[in-house]
C-alpha cells in the first residue's frame, strides 16, 4: 500500500510538471511525454495514468474539458489550475529537499561521518 502511494504521488508530480511545461494535453499526450523522458521505465500500463488524473481532478489540481486532437477527433484535454500550480511548487520544493538530503547520505564517505 505504502509503495503504491509513493508511486502514485510521484506519478502525480510528473503529470503536473508536464502540464506546467507543455500546457494543456490529452491523456495520450501525457503518456507519450512521460515515455519520452523516462524511457522504458514508465512505459508499461499507460492506463494507470487515468486514475491518477481523476484523483488530481477531484483534488482540484487539474481541470479537464473536451477539445480536438491532432487527428481532428474529440479528446479530453487536461490543464493545470492555479491550485495545481501552487501544489506543484510546494511538492517540487519538498522533493528537492528530500533528494538533496538523501544525496548527502548516499554520497557520504567514512571521513564525513567520523
Amino acid at each position: 500500500m505504502a509503495k503504491r502511494d509513493v508511486q502514485q504521488g510521484t506519478l502525480a508530480l510528473i503529470v503536473l510538471k508536464i502540464l506546467e511545461v507543455l500546457g494543456p494535453l490529452h491523456g495520450y499526450g501525457i503518456a507519450r511525454r512521460i515515455e519520452q523522458i523516462s524511457g522504458e521505465l514508465l512505459a508499461v500500463n499507460q492506463g494507470t495514468l487515468y486514475p491518477v488524473l481523476l484523483k488530481l481532478e477531484q483534488e482540484g489540481a487539474v481541470a479537464s474539458e473536451w477539445g480536438t486532437s491532432e487527428n481532428n477527433r474529440r479528446a479530453r484535454f487536461y490543464r493545470l489550475t492555479a491550485a495545481g500550480r501552487k501544489y506543484l511548487r510546494v511538492q517540487t520544493q519538498e522533493w528537492a529537499q528530500t533528494t538533496a538530503l538523501m544525496d548527502r547520505f548516499i554520497t557520504a564517505k567514512a571521513e564525513d561521518l567520523a
Partner: peptide, 14 residues
C-alpha cells in the same frame, strides 16, 4: 462513458 471515450481515443492514437 466519458472515460470509455477517452480510453478509445488513447488506444486509437497508440
Amino acid at each position: 462513458d466519458r472515460f470509455r471515450e477517452e480510453l478509445a481515443e488513447h488506444l486509437r492514437l497508440l
